[in-house]
Write a protein that binds this DNA or RNA. Structure first.
Lengths: 379, 379
DNA sequence: ATAAATTCCGTTAACGTTAACGGAGATTTA
DNA sequence: TAAATCTCCGTTAACGTTAACGGAATTTAT
């Protein structure tokens, strides 16, 4: 089976010797004092200029500004937060993990980020709402707005209610960040989420590679929570379908199959029907994290050689991936979304740095061989 | 082609309403002053206890220690680095990017980490050596050791020379971190690198999924730099091969093919031979980042429907992946390896936190659809 | 016995920034 | 013209920690 085919040659390979050194600040780190001295004013004046607190004449203000620019002053953030009495509060409003265990993940990232910026006087205030209850969203949002936070991270899953909340944020000039769900034409500071269609497209390619060419039946399984809105599911489905219409000569029949997650028996019946039919599947694409339900069916019914692709690193999914029942999990770094949402507010509020408005997470392809390295969220 | 198969049901789905709030420090943040007051000593004494600077009687020392424990004191790092006069220097010794463009990536991560911890008085000192010149490694290492750094990150690619360097580090009690290459039985603080065999194994699974079942000829291409050591290449090859011997009933012939990267014509000749032979390949696995050389051959010779899998996100590779010439790139987050190496030293030196000794990078599967999100190293 | 050394500990000036306080000089009000 | 009000600016005490300095009390040496 293994044939060795050498075609080696030895040639001297010479490369130049390079030495890199990070540029040291040739000039000693300059501070507010140096500026004051240079401008012949006191540090108090410099501080007033730096923070636009007024009470400075136009001429001295300009003089100080000029010297700040010339000397390339950058504030020492450590000293700043040591001295400053300002407390920042970041409010978070996301669905509770009872609605969908997915939401544990972004929260984990949010908390990790919060721990890191705690030393800069940042505090976290997390509220959750019931995915199947629009009122709970509005109530919690109002509660948050009353507490007058410095920044707001929210998952605007209910369109109308979200618009109302956003309007209030705008009048309060409260910076807000969307996570997971995106609403267009808003003055949101940033958005962190998934490119759902793209991930469906990717899943389709994996599916197409994995099934035998000439296979004829694929199934898209969409496990729904009927009382709650779904944005990503249909986008993932669309992405999946469009791969086959755009990219490949292989044209299997694609069947779409919705089912209510609250009644598992429906799923079993549907799967029974499919596997008993003459449209025996070569692959199933489960468009969200409930893929473990299908995997469970596969295991019980000893179904092999049917490609199973799903989403997200729930413990159950990991188990079935390791067992080989699930071939691929597509994962969109939910922890990272949370983590980065917090940091976008930190950059805006504390560092006064501009932040990117549209931020899609990487789409990770997880298999048996690399699951180990994705299990734990780090950093 | 697309068939809709609904099996929806509506059921009320009720979930509990949860409110999470990050535990606020109920007690006001306690500092060195509070301990001093509680222990009836001065802050000077507390500081002496905290840093084991001696000149404290046994009884008061124990008393202070007890109160520190009771009050759960944690030092304020901001104040610490504001006040402290200690400078930390992290020395880095890695191959120069001329030897292998791969090494730009870890360096990028190293620099990013250095920027972040600069505020804590950390400085970076990077030296590179010539991959094909063992002496240059030793020379640079000695230079570094003479400069008396606080920590040392090195790629110990030359076994014997590395042992000498490591011995010196041990006597100097200089903490050192291995990156990319691992030497066993050393007192290294940590190792950050790849699980090469595992990534080969993963590549083999992707290959097996992608080729038509019943395909018979696969080729492992190993582009070698003959004057330099290679550790990962053969491990990747082993991993690739072992997948087929362990996991699948599909048993293609696997051919291994070495070639010297300094003479591209050899590669072309070899590939010509293969594609003219009666052992026409269904897939090629290029065991390192030179996969673009093969992709270039594919493009010129209009070779299609042969699966091409390789390593690393070099610009050339990205280009061929986007064009569809390369199907998969396996990537091991080299930037992250550099980034984390620096932070392990930061944790050790500054935070006095324990660090994990063995750290494998995640193995990322990159395809046309998700390349966009991996192009730029962030965080 | 006194002088010298040692042990142990408190005091204090930094580090770079913030923000409250107050004061000199100019301008307006009564 | 004196009092009140503004404008503009300097001074200073924090923030929590480090580390040098020096001093009192005790022990050792002469």
């Amino acid at each position: 089976m293994f044939i060795y085919l050498p075609c080696t040659l030895t040639v001297i390979y010479d490369v130049p010797l390079i030495r890199l050194t990070l540029k040291k600040d040739a000039v000693l780190k300059i501070g507010i004092k140096d500026i004051a001295k240079q401008a012949n004013v006191s540090i108090g004046t410099v501080d007033r200029v730096l923070h636009n607190r007024g009470e400075v004449s136009k001429t001295t203000r300009e003089q100080v500004l000029k010297i700040i620019d010339e000397l390339g002053y950058t504030p020492n953030l450590l000293a700043k937060s040591l001295s400053s009495k300002i407390k920042y509060t970041i409010a978070v409003l996301i669905p509770d993990a009872g609605s969908n265990p997915y939401w544990e993940k972004p929260l984990e990232g949010i908390k990790a980020a919060a721990r890191e910026i705690k030393k800069f006087n940042f505090e976290l205030q997390v509220a959750t709402f019931d995915y199947s209850n629009e009122n709970s969203f509005t109530e919690k949002a109002n509660e948050i707005l009353e507490s007058n936070p410095s920044g707001f991270i929210l998952a605007p899953v209910f369109y109308e209610s979200s618009l109302t909340v956003i309007e209030k944020c705008d009048t309060l000039e409260l910076p807000y960040v969307f996570i997971d769900v995106f609403i267009e034409n808003c003055k949101n500071l940033a958005y962190f989420g998934q490119n759902s269609a793209q991930s469906g497209y990717l899943a389709a390619r994996l599916m197409n590679y994995s099934i035998n060419k000439g296979s004829s039946h694929l199934y898209i399984v969409k496990p729904l929570n009927p009382s709650a809105p779904v944005y990503h599911l249909s986008l993932r489905e669309k992405g999946f379908i469009s791969y086959f219409s755009l990219e490949t000569t292989n044209q299997p029949d694609i069947h779409s199959m919705d089912f209510d997650i609250s009644s598992p028996s429906i799923l079993v019946e549907s799967l029974d029907t499919i596997f008993a039919s003459n449209q025996y599947p070569s692959g199933l694409f489960v468009a969200n994290s409930r893929v473990h339900l299908v995997a469970n069916y596969f295991e019980k019914n000893k179904i092999k050689n049917v490609v199973l692709i799903g989403y997200d690193l729930l413990p159950e999914n990991i188990e079935y991936l390791e067992k080989g029942v699930i071939q691929f999990l597509v994962c969109q770094k939910p922890e990272e979304q949370g983590y980065k949402s917090v940091f976008s507010l930190f950059n805006h509020l504390f560092l006064k740095k501009p932040v990117d408005k549209l931020n899609y997470s990487p789409i990770d392809v997880i298999m048996k061989e690399n699951i180990e390295y994705y299990k734990n969220f780090k950093i």
